[in-house]
C-alpha cells in the first residue's frame, strides 16, 4: 500500500518524511455535536427484576446490563467485555439466558429479568450456587454470576430439548453429558479456568434433578 492512500479525517495523521509505511487514518465520520434537543433521560421503560417491578426513565443508550448495575445497583451481573464476547453479563429474561450487555434496557418493556441476586442469597443458596461452592467452580469470582445463571438456564434448555452442536442425533432429546454441558456453557468464559469444576457442579445438580 502507498502513502496517502487513505483518507484523512477526524483523527488525522500527519506522516513525517521518514515514514515509508502506510498511514493510519480514521474511519469515523466527521464529528457532529450531539443533538441537544434530545434530553437523554426521557425514555420510560418498566420491567420486573427478581420479582420486583422497576420503572425507569432512561437515556435510550443504557443497556440492560448498565440499568441493572448502575441504576438498580444490582452489581452481581458483571461487565467483562460489554460486547457479547464473554458471558459475564448473563441474566435470564422470560426464562431464557441472554447477554445483558447487548440489549438496550428499552427492549425489555414488561419482561421478567432474573439476575444472580434473584437465584439465591448468601443465607439461602440456590442448588446451583451450592454446587459451585462444593466443587470450587470459580476462583476470582468475576465470571461466576454469569456462569451460574447460564448453568441454571442450560439445564432447563436440556430439559426443553433445545439442541446443541455436540448432539449426535438432532432428533433425539439431549441429556446432560459432560460434552453437552461444556458445549452449552461455552458462551461463558472463565479465564481462571474453573471449567472442569463447573461441569462437575452442573452434573451434580442435573443428577439430583432426575
Amino acid at each position: 500500500m502507498e502513502e496517502g492512500e487513505y483518507e484523512i479525517s477526524r483523527r488525522s495523521v500527519l506522516v513525517s518524511s521518514a515514514v515509508t509505511a502506510t498511514l493510519a487514518a480514521a474511519g469515523v465520520s466527521e464529528a457532529q455535536p450531539l443533538p441537544k434537543a434530545l434530553a437523554p433521560a426521557d425514555h420510560k421503560v418498566s420491567f420486573v427484576v427478581n420479582g420486583k417491578g422497576q420503572a425507569f426513565s432512561l437515556d435510550p443508550r443504557i443497556t440492560l446490563l448498565d440499568a441493572l448495575r448502575e441504576h438498580l445497583h444490582l452489581t452481581g451481573t458483571k461487565k467483562g467485555c460489554d460486547h457479547g464476547q464473554c458471558g459475564a453479563c448473563t441474566v435470564i429474561v422470560n426464562g431464557e439466558r441472554i447477554n445483558s450487555c447487548l440489549s438496550l434496557a428499552l427492549q425489555h418493556e414488561g419482561d421478567e429479568v432474573t439476575t444472580i441476586e434473584g437465584l439465591g442469597t448468601p443465607e439461602k443458596l440456590h442448588p446451583m450456587q451450592a454446587a459451585f461452592v462444593k466443587h470450587d467452580g470459580y476462583q476470582c469470582g468475576y465470571c461466576t454470576p454469569g456462569q451460574i445463571c447460564s448453568a441454571v438456564a442450560v439445564l432447563d434448555e436440556i430439559k426443553r430439548g433445545v439442541p446443541s452442536h455436540v448432539q449426535a442425533e438432532l432428533t433425539r432429546a439431549p441429556t446432560p453429558t459432560n460434552a453437552e454441558l461444556r458445549e452449552r456453557m461455552s458462551g461463558n468464559i472463565c479465564r481462571c479456568g474453573a471449567y472442569s469444576n463447573i461441569a462437575e457442579a452442573m452434573a451434580d445438580v442435573a443428577e439430583a434433578r432426575v
Binding site: G87, R97, N99, A153, G187
Partner: peptide, 21 residues
C-alpha cells in the same frame, strides 16, 4: 427432522445466550 443442516449451522454459531436473542 427435515432441515438438519440448518439446525446444525445455527447451533454451531455464537453462544447459547446470543442464539436466544
Amino acid at each position: 427432522r427435515d432441515y438438519g443442516v440448518l439446525a446444525r449451522a445455527i447451533v454451531a454459531g455464537a453462544s447459547g445466550q446470543l442464539r436466544n436473542k
